[in-house]
Design a protein around this nucleic acid. Structure first.
Lengths: 207, 207
DNA sequence: CGCTAATCTAGAACAAGTTTCAGACTTGAT
DNA sequence: ATCAAGTCTGAAACTTGTTCTAGATTAGCG
């Protein structure tokens, strides 16, 4: 499977400038509303009005609220990945670096808990019709973790470890967002799951 | 914190027989509809009609669709735990037994993928207002895993491992349900995360 | 039994996601 | 410049979760 081709739909027609601008306005409005009351505060009519676009147009760009929020998350993740590239984690072992990276992301989310709520809820609530977009988010997250590990071409075993880390990351986030786990618990759980890394291949520790 | 008291609301008034029967009918209808089309197929009006109860009554018993589906999951989990007790897993190590238990549960869910979809989506979509109920499900799951490990009083470290396993379990289930991961991948991920068990305390292996 | 409070019912009403449609506007090609 | 095809708009309609109300029923109690 080709690396880039798989991230774009069958043949995404290129957007004109005005269309690109509309798309931006929509994503911006979505993030703004989400930053206020979370998932419920992102109301499609309000997003449309706020981004100066007709409701029908909003649905042409994003076929559902979940699509919209997942796209919003893609947007935010790109930011995050960029930021992380600039100041890479400094831990000695791969496990430490991944844990540090995730905790850094976690602190960023803590600053915008409502936005985090909207994005994560959308992500886990997404059904099959959103699979390509969710998958894209997953790939992006995988890339961030592999970056932190300093791995270029992981073994299937290591990929499984990365998936388990992502599982833990998403689910721990949810339990925190819904008030069922403390920040401390999330940290401990992240550190716990990161131990799997050195278990799989202690050689990645120093490199 | 008291063991039993925390699972029941401030003072759950005892239900009369007819009320108990209504509650059963509702849960049964919910599971039946979920078994067909999953989350979307569980429509409150239809649940009400199907269980011969007025819509308002349904909402008195379960204050939202998510509450209803989480309660449905509690119901199913009890079944499952009972079944598991009768034929406990036979692995040599704690990790093997937990993996076997989860895979058994997974196979059960595969038989009713739509029901699984409805329950898991509800679980992860639940907001703070459903926390007590979701927490109850979480405790039940924890109990099942600790049972499989053969642990009576776990350390905080071990509890973190169990939480990570639960995180992985839920999230892996979601990726499978939304068609983004294969059954084989789920198995591998479960086995991967279970390795954390022996890492924490190899002594639990035989017991 | 007869009363009172709580519960249940049928149905309307409301809220927000989604769909639809007729007409106005853009875009790209000729 | 002009035409056809595609896109955008505004507004109404539809769907399903949720709330509300007025009246009927039931449960518990003296």
């Amino acid at each position: 499977m080709p690396a880039e081709a798989s991230t774009s739909r069958p043949a995404a027609p290129p957007l004109t400038e005005r269309q690109e601008a509309r798309r931006r306005r929509i994503l911006h409005a979505s993030a703004r509303l989400a930053g206020r009351g979370g998932f419920d505060a992102v109301q499609m009519r309000e997003v449309a009005e706020s981004s100066q676009v007709a409701l029908g147009t909003l649905y042409r760009y994003f076929p559902s609220k979940v699509h919209l929020l997942v796209a919003t998350m893609q947007d935010q993740l790109e930011h995050m990945h960029g930021t992380l590239r600039k100041r890479p984690p400094a831990g000695a072992t791969a496990a430490e670096r991944v844990a540090e990276t995730l905790m850094r992301a976690f602190r960023a989310l803590q600053r915008e808990p409502h936005l985090a709520d909207a994005m994560v809820r959308a992500l886990t609530f997404a059904d099959r019709s959103v699979s390509p977009e969710v998958d894209q988010v997953s790939r992006q997250t995988t890339a961030i973790i592999l970056d932190a590990m300093g791995l270029a071409d992981p073994t299937p075993e290591q990929l499984s470890v990365v998936r388990v880390i992502e599982h833990t990351w998403h689910s721990a986030l949810i339990t925190w967002l819904s008030g069922r786990a403390s920040i401390a618990q999330v940290r401990v759980d992240i550190e716990t799951v990161c131990r799997l890394i050195d278990l799989t291949d202690p050689a990645t520790a120093r490199s």
